[in-house]
Design a protein around this nucleic acid. Sequence first.
DNA 1: CTAATGTTTATGGTATATCATGGGAATTTA
DNA 2: TAAATTCCCATGATATACCATAAACATTAG
Lengths: 156, 156
Amino acid sequence: MSKTFLFMDTVVNKVDSKGRVSLPSDYRSIVKELSTEIVCYRSLTSPCIEGCPEELLEKLASDMESSLDFFSQEQDDLTNLIFGDAKRFAFDSTGRIVLTEKLLKHAEITDTAVFVGKGRKFQIWNPENWAKEEARIRAEVLKKRPSLKLPAGAQA
Amino acid sequence: MSKTFLFMDTVVNKVDSKGRVSLPSDYRSIVKELSTEIVCYRSLTSPCIEGCPEELLEKLASDMESSLDFFSQEQDDLTNLIFGDAKRFAFDSTGRIVLTEKLLKHAEITDTAVFVGKGRKFQIWNPENWAKEEARIRAEVLKKRPSLKLPAGAQA
DNA sequence: CTAATGTTTATGGTATATCATGGGAATTTA
DNA sequence: TAAATTCCCATGATATACCATAAACATTAG
């Protein structure tokens, strides 16, 4: 199979007036092993953009084919939404992509974008929204796992 | 899969003004069997940095990859938290990595770092914090000793 | 048992390559 | 033809690779 690739880390980049934004170099070197483009779509659950190599969506599609209809109806609807929304974005020689108005609006991004690694995929956030979301997630995770408490004052 | 590797021992190294620090040679020789880089992230439970080979996170990603979990909220949160924080660190020919400000701050490390082996992964501590933590752990273990039974067949 | 020697490891400094980003030219679309 | 989009080059900032020195360690000879 292909090399291991994981999108990691959180990177802040600028978005210029044309909607151009640099894909973090780490992300690029991952994608380049496969192609020179990524797929982006509006997150179904959050005010952010999701991105991934096309391979991931292919896998999603083939998994849908082989799963039982009985259980997959709801997911079938969701995949329709994703595939209906997804679009390929090629990055140029300097490593930038041009995000569409639709995506930027959904994520409420104007001049700054935060790239957040998610393993096989990544997300693009408005800085303030991401700050809130990260805080929410940390609180949520700590609540669900009382044993995971940080020592007082040790929070990031 | 891969050979089994164990990070062991406790090693103290200096951190220079740029955040550069030598990965202990024992650790390096372990990692080198696979690649020339490791992954580091802020510990969820302690004021320290955790490190491991990328393979460890690979497995986590593989689990998330299955389409059945593609839309799960909890996994969504977890991947954001873990992969959003983790970062790959390549060490150069002299065996050093450059830790980021975010990681150093979380672990309260300024000019000295303590590497603590933890088996499949390792931790990086501020010296004073590690001294306290080690004392705490020892006290804890002694207190709980009567109930420290291994599952049958799970002995080292 | 001690001293000398060679080898690996840690650390400091500097040069180089890479990356993010802005501006503008060329090309396409309406 | 006007507007928008894509492509290409320039630049400053940053991070990485490289070289040199110093310290720790192990080995071997005396």
